[in-house]
């Protein structure tokens, strides 16, 4: 297991979201779950907590998260990830899915 925490600068989240939290994905082989929650501090940073069963890929995690924080206004959110070896493309997809659920609701 590898565990790390890092905050990335990001434009503030819209003041109103559909839900206080959202979850995308499941923990399973080659998959991950991503939870996004409102109320992270400060409002101009995305606070990330990652736990992964595959150690040694911290650099690509940081790149994926930094990229997301740059492209989406996600400041003031807390991102928590439980990973069981998901490929980077899936990480990206789950982040976007969770963000959509959070801001627009499930449907």
């Amino acid at each position: 297991m590898e565990k790390f925490t890092k905050a990335f600068p990001s434009k503030p989240l819209p003041s109103k979201t559909a839900k206080p939290w959202a979850l995308a994905g499941v923990v399973g082989s080659g998959n991950l779950e991503v939870m996004l929650e409102r109320g992270g501090k400060p409002s101009d940073a995305m606070e990330c907590h990652v736990e992964t069963s595959i150690p040694g890929y911290k650099a690509s995690w940081l790149a994926a998260l930094s990229d997301f924080a740059h492209h989406y206004p996600a400041g003031g959110t807390k991102v928590t990830i439980n990973d069981q070896g998901a490929p980077p493309v899936l990480v990206n997809l789950r982040l976007r899915q969770a963000y959509d659920h959070l801001t627009k609701g499930d449907k």
């Binding site: 499941v26 923990v27 736990e51 992964t52 928590t80």
Partner: peptide, 29 residues
């Protein structure tokens, strides 16, 4: 029914297995 589900002990409560964590297996919220 649409919108009728209200979750108990939802993921933000983070009630995860301390046993799996000790075995180095990923936990789930």
């Amino acid at each position: 029914d649409a919108g009728s589900f209200s979750e108990l002990l939802p993921p933000p409560e983070r009630i995860t297995s301390p046993y799996l964590a000790q075995l180095g297996i990923p936990v789930s919220f």
